[in-house]
């Protein structure tokens, strides 16, 4: 199927969202709460676009592109005056929520907003409440964090604000957060996140660490991966692979091959 974006036709696949096409084609639309690893959510409302269709008798509407499934001959406009106004409004509010967050400042600036018209939040942190962290944690099967509190005081938190028992320290939440709000620290082979400490698995041969013991144990137990796969790091496993192959190789092949060439 094909959809039209800003006057040009693009291929689209059954079942995907308008935003998927925009991203694939490199058409710039801000979208802070959408990530391919999780289901769309429609929280930030920045990805708004205008849609219409030749069969709709002139009807047009603004929708969140991350939640709108493509259909054949859909006509999309990403930068109408209305859409830009909507995005400005959202950014104005976001800037009040997160006045000190570089990612938000930059995006707001792109839309011509230097300071918010609203009262900036006191003691503001960098969380924009996009829910990506909680969604990815759930998607991975851990469910360690969630949104707590109401209204103004809503925040991403661990149960009872204590060290989360279900967290494995995988850092999916850290890596997915669009504003780098979630902090962690690796000191030696100890990782600290959400107020909990984890030991990283140390390579038996060189000491390099990749993931936490808890994460490895989860994968061993639930994903049917042999436990010894995690004993050695990737570098040492490549070296081990080479050594194992060495025993299998018929090294004479070289001389034979050379002989063939010289004949």
């Amino acid at each position: 199927m094909k959809i039209q974006i800003n006057g040009r036709w693009y291929k689209a696949r059954e079942g995907e969202m308008v935003l998927d096409v925009l991203r694939r084609e490199g058409i710039e639309v801000p979208a802070l709460c959408a990530h391919e690893a999780v289901e769309p959510y429609g929280a930030c409302r920045l990805c708004m676009v205008e849609i219409t269709h030749e069969d709709w008798g002139g009807w047009k509407g603004n929708v969140t592109s991350c939640l709108y499934p493509v259909e054949d001959k859909l006509i999309v406009q990403t930068h109408t005056e209305d859409v830009i106004e909507l995005r400005k409004m959202v950014l104005n509010l976001l800037l009040a929520r997160c006045p000190n967050t570089p990612e938000i400042q930059k995006l707001a600036e792109e839309y011509g907003i230097d300071i918010t018209d609203f009262v900036p939040r006191e003691d503001a942190d960098d969380c924009i409440m996009c829910g990506l962290c909680t969604r990815v944690c759930t998607q991975m099967g851990f469910n360690a964090i969630s949104v707590a509190g109401r209204g103004y005081d809503r925040e991403v938190a661990t149960p009872l604000k204590e060290a989360p028992p279900d967290c494995v320290g995988c850092l999916a939440c850290v890596n997915i957060c669009p504003t780098n709000h979630i902090k962690y620290q690796d000191v030696g082979t100890t990782r600290e996140i959400w107020g909990r400490q984890f030991e990283l698995v140390k390579c038996k041969e060189c000491g390099k660490a990749l993931i936490t013991r808890e994460f490895a144990d989860y994968l061993i137990k639930n994903r049917d991966i042999p436990a010894d796969y995690f004993d050695v790091c990737d570098d040492c496993k490549r070296a081990g692979t080479a050594k194992n192959f060495k025993k299998l190789v018929h090294w004479e092949e070289k001389e034979e091959a050379e002989e063939e060439v010289s004949v």
């Binding site: 991203r23 990530h35 391919e36 690893a37 990815v136 991975m140 995988c170 850092l171 999916a172 890596n175 997915i176 698995v201 990749l210 993931i211 994460f215 490895a216 994968l219 991966i225 042999p226 796969y229 995690f230 050695v232 790091c233 990737d234 570098d235 040492c236 496993k237 490549r238 070296a239 081990g240 692979t241």
Partner: peptide, 19 residues
């Protein structure tokens, strides 16, 4: 676009070929 860089695959590949 889907990868969230958790490194599970890097740690799991028995040949050390996820990098």
């Amino acid at each position: 676009e889907r990868c969230i860089k958790c490194r599970a695959c890097v740690a799991a590949c028995p040949f050390g070929c996820s990098l």
